[in-house]
Design a protein around this nucleic acid. Structure first.
Length: 282
DNA sequence: CACGTCACCTGCGTGC
DNA sequence: TGCACGCAGGTGACGT
């Protein structure tokens, strides 16, 4: 579910705190409850529990779609995958016992304060790590699309380095870190590039436009606090700005042609067949 | 290297 | 109403 803007929104709230809860930064871990072992990617769940106990959270950062919590010793890392979320909430006691876990809470990190950090994941795809070296988890990621070093020229060179369908390439986290199915469809639509175009057929001009579109879409997503789709409401409003995602059957806002949905690399893909010209060799 | 398929999971909308 | 089916903001392993 969450892509870069949603993860960024979650991380900012955890780092800075909100009206509802304090920052996670500065909290010291008292205990950990794990209700689905496979969420813990590394190390073994029992070891994980032992190693993070009494550690203090020094910061909350994002890299691609990963959440990264440097501790006073080691690093806590998390990936929300399709249906994950992370929230701070008060430890509420029911009589002498902690309140029972919500249905989808998979990892509960109790702090020494009366707050706790909860990792929920409906589909159980989410993952957490405790590692000495954060880079060991983040190593495979490509550049941050909103960083200064990600320039239009660099994107052009990167595109030239592959001969792949542009959409799956943009979603490949080792190519660029953070784009998922929604923001990729929106960025390609904005750039008027068909998702099946070969990456090395894009002109410098098209690469420039794509670069601008990617940064615009992600920035707007963050500004709107991400998107809330289906029953996974998380407070964001960017879904109201969608131009093609989930819009199959409705007119293109640019030209009025009906938006269609096709399959690209096993993923539902939305596009305007007039604005985004289909390549001959697709 | 590029791409298709399957696996991992639960829940929701659709059509019969 | 019940139920099978396809689909869902992601990733990784494996086969061709």
């Amino acid at each position: 579910m969450p892509e870069l803007p949603e993860v960024e929104t979650i991380v900012r709230r955890l780092r800075n705190g909100t009206d509802e809860h304090p920052p996670v930064v500065g909290e010291t871990i008292a205990s950990v409850e794990i209700t689905w072992d496979r969420i813990i990617a590394e190390p073994e769940p029992d070891t994980f529990r032992d190693l993070v106990r009494r550690r203090m959270i020094k910061d909350a950062r994002r890299r691609g779609k990963y959440l990264h919590f440097p501790l006073d010793n080691g690093h806590l890392m998390a990936h929300l995958r399709m249906s994950g979320d992370m929230r701070m909430e008060k430890r509420q006691r029911v009589e002498a016992k902690e309140r029972p876990a919500e249905k989808y809470d998979r990892v509960i990190i109790n702090f020494e304060s009366n707050w706790r950090l909860v990792f929920s994941s409906i589909r159980k795809f989410g993952r957490m790590w405790y590692v000495d070296d954060a880079q060991s988890v983040l190593d495979h990621l490509g550049p941050e699309p909103l960083s200064d070093s990600f320039t239009p020229e660099k994107l052009y060179e990167m595109l030239q380095g592959h001969s792949r369908q542009i959409k799956p390439l943009l979603m490949d986290q080792s190519f660029i870190a953070g784009l998922g199915n929604v923001y990729t469809d929106e960025a390609l639509y904005k750039a008027k590039i068909h998702p099946l175009r070969r990456s090395d057929t894009l002109s410098r001009e098209e690469a420039n436009t794509l670069h601008r579109s990617i940064q615009f879409i992600l920035t707007e997503g963050i500004r709107r606090f991400g998107a809330s789709i289906d029953w996974m409401y998380r407070g964001g409003e960017f879904q109201n700005e969608f131009r093609v995602y989930g819009k199959d059957g409705v007119p293109c806002p640019e030209c009025g042609t009906t938006i269609v949905k096709i399959k690209v690399g096993q993923r539902g893909t939305h596009l305007c067949p007039s604005c985004q010209e289909e390549p001959q060799t697709a």
